[in-house]
C-alpha cells in the first residue's frame, strides 16, 4: 500500500513539474539565439564578406554553429580574443586565407572620373555612397566601413581605398612614431 502512495506521489509531482516546464517553455520562449546576437555584437560590422559569409550576421551564426573564429580580418586580434572569451575557445592567430588586418581604410571616389553608373551604390552594404544615375557619386567617409566591395564593380576604376588619416584625436600615443629630428 505504501508503495502505491509513493508511486502516486512521485507521479503527481512529475506531472506537475512537467506542466510547469511545458508552460514555461511556451511562455518564456527565446525568439532568437542570443549567442548569435552576442557574437554579432563583437564582429566589426564591415559587412565585407572576407570571412566567406555574406555579412557579419551570417558569420556570427556560423560561429555559433561551430565555425572557426579567426576568419575576420577587419576585426583582427582583439575580435578573435573577444570571440575566444565568449565561446570558451583558444584564441588563435588570424587565418591569412581570408586576408590580413592592415591599416583601416575608407573608399574614396575620384569624382572627376566617375561616370555615374550607380554600380558602387548597389554594392555598398551600408549605403555609404551617395549619387544618382549619370551624376557624380561620392563616399560618406564617416559611414564607410572600408569593406572594399565597391571597388570591383566600378567600370572605370575610379574608387581607391585610402588609409584613414590620423588626427590628434585618433592618435594612439605611438611616441616612437615621432621622428626624432635634430634641429640645427
Amino acid at each position: 500500500m505504501s508503495l502505491l502512495y509513493a508511486l502516486l506521489a512521485i507521479g503527481l509531482l512529475a506531472l506537475l513539474f512537467g506542466l510547469i516546464l511545458g508552460y514555461a517553455a511556451v511562455r518564456f520562449k527565446v525568439e532568437s539565439d542570443p549567442l548569435v546576437e552576442q557574437i554579432d555584437a563583437i564582429l566589426p560590422q564591415t559587412q565585407c564578406g572576407q570571412c566567406g559569409y555574406p555579412g557579419c550576421r551570417p558569420y556570427a551564426e556560423a560561429i555559433a554553429n561551430g565555425d572557426e573564429i579567426n576568419k575576420c580580418p577587419p576585426g583582427g586580434e582583439s575580435t578573435i580574443r573577444q570571440l575566444a572569451d565568449l565561446m570558451g575557445l583558444e584564441a588563435k592567430p588570424l587565418d591569412d586565407a581570408h586576408g590580413s588586418n592592415d591599416v583601416k581604410k575608407v573608399a574614396f571616389i575620384r569624382e572627376d572620373e566617375c561616370i555615374g553608373c550607380t554600380k558602387c551604390i548597389q554594392a555598398c552594404p551600408v549605403d555609404a555612397i551617395v549619387g544618382a544615375s549619370k551624376q557624380m557619386h561620392t563616399v560618406i567617409s564617416e559611414e564607410c566601413t572600408g569593406c572594399d566591395l565597391c571597388v570591383d564593380p566600378c567600370p572605370v576604376d575610379c574608387i581607391d581605398m585610402v588609409p584613414v588619416k590620423v588626427t590628434a584625436s585618433s592618435w594612439r600615443w605611438q611616441l616612437d612614431a615621432i621622428p626624432v629630428k635634430t634641429i640645427d
Binding site: D40, L43, P44, Q45, T46, Q47, G55, C56, P125, V126, D127, A128, E143, T145
Partner: peptide, 10 residues
C-alpha cells in the same frame, strides 16, 4: 559605435 551604426545601416 561605428560598428553599431554600420549594423543599423546594413
Amino acid at each position: 559605435q561605428k560598428a553599431d551604426k554600420a549594423r543599423d545601416r546594413f
